[in-house]
């Protein structure tokens, strides 16, 4: 992918704190296009698609929201909790929409390992293939995300169960 002028402007916005504290790129010095390219290659090698990952993240967030801040048991031994703050964040890509300040935390009950995403970071993954730079608080490794989401099957949700 070529690092166009637009991409450079986008990268400058992402390295600033205009949208989120510390920006989206953490301590990663690679150009934005390179970060996206590398992660998209990883996703493809894992046999996953961005659309598929985005759809499962959205379903997990929706399942967690029903707990109103309390963890909800879902999938094969997962719990999901959604923390919401009032307010909106915009996507750094021009004119790309606004997202609630909602954070979803998914935890494997057997190992205690968890990953988290915000509505915005889920959109960045699904719509832009952008998993964020290394060192960003919201970076998720594609292989960790794919592994965690493989434990979730929508039909196995227990909406009223809490952990």
């Amino acid at each position: 992918m070529k690092q166009t002028v637009q991409m450079q402007e986008l990268e400058a916005l992402m390295r600033s704190s205009q949208i989120v504290a510390g920006g989206f790129l953490g301590s990663d010095t690679r150009p934005l296009s390179e970060i996206i390219e590398a992660d998209e290659a990883d996703v493809a090698a894992l046999g996953a698609t961005l659309d598929g990952l985005g759809a499962k993240m959205a379903e997990l967030t929706a399942a967690g929201k029903r707990g109103l801040g309390t963890a909800v048991a879902v999938g094969d031994g997962l719990s999901v909790r959604v923390e919401e703050s009032r307010g909106l964040l915009i996507c750094p890509w021009p004119n790309h929409g606004r997202f609630l300040k909602t954070e979803t935390i998914v935890t494997r009950l057997d190992t205690g390992v968890s990953i988290h995403w915000s509505d915005l970071s889920a959109h960045l993954i699904a719509a832009h293939g952008f998993f964020q730079g290394r060192g960003s608080a919201f970076r998720v490794e594609p292989r960790d995300l794919v592994a965690m989401l493989s434990l979730y099957h929508p039909s196995s949700e227990h909406p009223s169960g809490t952990s």
């Binding site: 929201k65 029903r66 109103l68 801040g69 959604v82 919401e84 703050s85 609630l100 909602t102």
Partner: peptide
């Protein structure tokens, strides 16, 4: 409160 609490 949170948007989720308001919706529910």
């Amino acid at each position: 409160g949170s948007p989720g609490m308001i919706d529910a």
